[in-house]
């Protein structure tokens, strides 16, 4: 019996080495470009030293390290992230706010659009293309377009603008007063509003695509059954469509949260790498923006921030998975 078993094992091994052979190129790439950087990031995040000139603990810097400067193991990078200035807390706050606002809005909108797209026959392909367009456009370029749409031209900061962007033109056409969305002195809520519109618009295509795919996989008989059972459209949507789509919705929400925490390009696209309107640099900074700020001269601190970001995303995803498992079980 045991002999037979080991025989089968040998056979399996024999088959396996071929599989491993085919996997090797990919594994090497993964090791070099994914596994090693992750490992290295963790290592670097714990490296720091006491700098006499600055009179403070500074994180690992590659440029100094190759000149022979020695680093010690410690938790100071993590402490530094939270204590030196409040820029990390600002970035964390901005990121959280954007994520919490955009994920529900974009998911709801995507769901409605997907259901609508699934039920029309005329121009279906056309609208699918229209809604898919943001996916294939350059985020930075579109950010600049958004900046122009929401922007204004000020000859001098003290005077009213000589011309306004298309959004303000529309607002004024309806009798409203123009709003300073993104320029010097613009209020924080206006900046966030523009960012939310941009991010939602940018996130829709992927979500619509996933949800539409899910919808097309739903057996039409469920809808026939619901029709015979006399369910109203609204009830069919909530009691049949949404539950049947729940695995897709969970997927979209989880990826949405992960994407939200990594938000960076939208802010750069609209506000430039100042990460805020002119005169208020850094006010709209995000976690990824914070990490990028420290990459050139303090990789230790950047790595520490990256690890913190990872832990946050990990926890949020775990919560998401836990909730969705409870809700989508069938």
């Amino acid at each position: 019996m045991s002999h037979k078993k080991s025989n089968r094992k040998n056979k399996n091994l024999k088959n396996q080495w071929k599989a491993w052979l085919y996997l090797t190129p990919m594994i090497i790439l993964l090791l070099v470009f994914t596994v090693w950087p992750i490992f290295n990031t963790i290592r670097i995040s714990f490296l720091c030293r006491w700098d006499e000139d600055l009179g403070a603990v500074v994180g690992y810097d590659y440029a100094k390290a190759i000149q022979g400067v020695k680093y010690q193991f410690g938790f100071n990078n993590f402490i530094n992230v939270f204590t030196t200035g409040d820029s990390f807390l600002i970035a964390l706050g901005n990121t959280m706010l954007l994520t919490v606002l955009t994920v529900p809005i974009s998911t709801m909108l995507a769901l409605l659009i997907a259901v609508a797209l699934n039920s029309i026959k005329w121009l279906k392909k056309f609208f699918q293309t229209v809604f898919f367009l943001p996916y294939v456009t350059n985020a930075i370029a579109i950010g600049m377009v958004f900046a122009a749409m929401f922007g204004m031209v000020w000859p001098t900061p003290a005077k009213p603008p000589t011309s306004v962007g298309i959004i303000n033109t529309i607002i004024e056409a309806f009798g409203g007063h123009y709003i300073n969305w993104v320029d010097r002195g613009s209020p924080y809520w206006a900046n966030i509003a523009v960012l939310v519109i941009y991010i939602v618009w940018n996130a829709l295509p992927f979500k619509i695509l996933v949800l539409l795919g899910g919808l097309q996989n739903v057996d039409k008989q469920y809808y026939d059954a619901a029709k015979v059972d006399g369910a109203s459209r609204w009830r069919v949507f909530w009691r049949v469509t949404v539950p049947l789509l729940s695995p897709m919705i969970a997927c979209v929400v989880i990826t949405g949260f992960i994407g939200g925490f990594k938000e960076y390009t939208s802010v750069v696209g609209i506000f430039g790498d100042g990460m805020g309107p002119t005169g208020a640099n850094g006010s709209l900074n995000t976690m990824v923006g914070f990490i990028y700020n420290y990459i050139p001269h303090n990789q230790g601190k950047a790595s520490a921030a990256a690890l913190i970001l990872f832990v946050i995303i990990f926890i949020v995803t775990m919560i998401n998975m836990y909730v969705s498992k409870k809700k989508t079980h069938y």
């Binding site: 057996d219 059954a225 029709k227 049947l244 069938y330």
Partner: peptide, 17 residues
């Protein structure tokens, strides 16, 4: 829904959730 019929589908179409 107004005909007063009961219909059993070939693959039953029971709501899985």
């Amino acid at each position: 829904e107004n005909r007063g019929i009961g219909l059993v589908f070939q693959n039953y179409a029971l709501y899985p959730h």
